[in-house]
């Protein structure tokens, strides 16, 4: 009985730890994200909620950088596909669609990421 209680407690304690691995991206699937495209020494990336506590850095496969290239330093809205779980703040997804957007600088909640449809994660 004690062992069962201990296992239950350990399981409950581990839940938030497991959840932390997936902060911001609740599951694999297609998302829309409002962010800004930046170029770095490690390639072109998309940053959501830049310079905030909830900043998300999304990198893309090298061939996919071509889609982002014309939008460097511009605010964009992208449709992005995540098929793998990642580090909570450093993610890799594939950009499917991209368009310029007018950022609303007075609204701190103007950028973010939203799940559109779920997919199975690749294993």
């Amino acid at each position: 009985m004690r062992i069962f209680t201990l296992i239950s407690i350990l399981f409950l304690i581990s839940l938030p730890i497991l959840a932390q691995n997936w902060t911001g991206i609740s599951s694999c699937g297609t998302y829309t994200a409002n962010g800004i495209v930046r170029t770095t020494d490690n390639g072109i990336i998309l940053i959501v909620n830049e310079k905030t506590m909830s900043e998300l850095i999304i990198s893309v496969p090298i061939p996919n950088e071509i889609i982002l290239a014309p939008y460097v330093d511009h605010s964009v809205k992208v449709t992005i596909l995540f098929l793998k779980k990642h580090d909570p703040i450093k993610l890799e997804g594939t950009v499917k669609e991209i368009e310029l957007r007018v950022a609303n600088s007075i609204d701190p909640q103007d950028t973010g990421i939203k799940l559109i449809s779920k997919n199975n994660c690749e294993i």
């Binding site: 390639g43 290239a69 014309p70």
Partner: peptide, 19 residues
Amino acid sequence: LITTDFNLLILQNQKHAKN
């Protein structure tokens, strides 16, 4: 094509390739 700075992208890409 006109608004993109490809020379900058080439430089960044070379640094990336080095690492």
